[in-house]
Design a protein around this nucleic acid. Structure first.
Lengths: 127, 127
DNA sequence: TTTGACTATTGACATAGTGACTATAGTCTG
DNA sequence: CAGACTATAGTCACTATGTCAATAGTCAAA
């Protein structure tokens, strides 16, 4: 049996074994924690996390997935835009919980990376 | 095949956002650095890196991919096994270089995770 | 010697995730 | 009006992964 972190029913994203998986979704949720925004704007905020080169298409898809799972909700904003209508996303309560869990998961990922890095330097006889 | 891993040289390469991805391949290369082994054995060694729940099938596939790219090489070992013949993998020189690059990449991933974790704790008003 | 547990690798098919290209459409500036 | 920028989404091809199962050798107990 796999030690997956199975909670939250949305069948979708199977993070599976991979400790150090996508940073995109957690980064989006983290941004949304500071206030609702639309995908295009979020895409620009990703630079803060070093995710500046994530394709826009992927940001939108991630948001659609997050919404499908109930972790964010969206509404159209038709005025006050600098272009066509925007779909503005907001964190749901469940999303807030997920974000919390996700952060714990990331701490594990970081620990796994550390173990690997240490093993490399050890067996490498130091650089 | 495994398109990515544009690594080495070209600063460009599509990466960038995919920071914290697979630990499996680097972990395999890291293990192989300490001596050649077969997939089944490697699969057991993965526990050291916290990757105990990676499906065997995936380990084999990863090794096939690594070999296809020239980063490891393999030979059959028919005697001295505790079962059927084993395919024993060894790091190539290119694999050694890749491992080095990969570790640098992992340090970046680690930093990205840190940034995210910090942003979370900051905007979260601390837990 | 047959059975079952463990070792060991791989094939095949379905499905999920991604990249690249394309379509649509509103706003703003000149 | 043209053209740049804002803003979101469809589609298709390719890749990665999950899952089930096939194959096969060794070893120890019944």
């Amino acid at each position: 049996m796999h030690g997956r972190h199975g909670h939250r029913g949305g069948g979708g994203r199977g993070a599976g074994y991979g400790r150090a998986d996508h940073l995109l979704e957690p980064a989006l949720l983290c941004s949304l924690q500071q206030g609702a925004t639309h995908g295009y704007g979020l895409s620009e905020q990703l630079a803060e996390f070093g995710l500046e080169s994530v394709p826009l298409r992927r940001v939108y898809r991630a948001l659609q997935g997050l919404e499908g799972a109930g972790w964010v909700s969206s509404d159209w904003e038709t005025s006050q835009t600098q272009g066509p209508p925007r779909r503005v996303y907001a964190l749901t309560l469940e999303g807030r919980q997920l974000l919390h869990d996700w952060m714990a998961h990331l701490r594990e990922s970081r620990a796994a990376i550390d173990r690997l890095l240490e093993a490399y330097e050890r067996s490498n006889g130091r650089a």
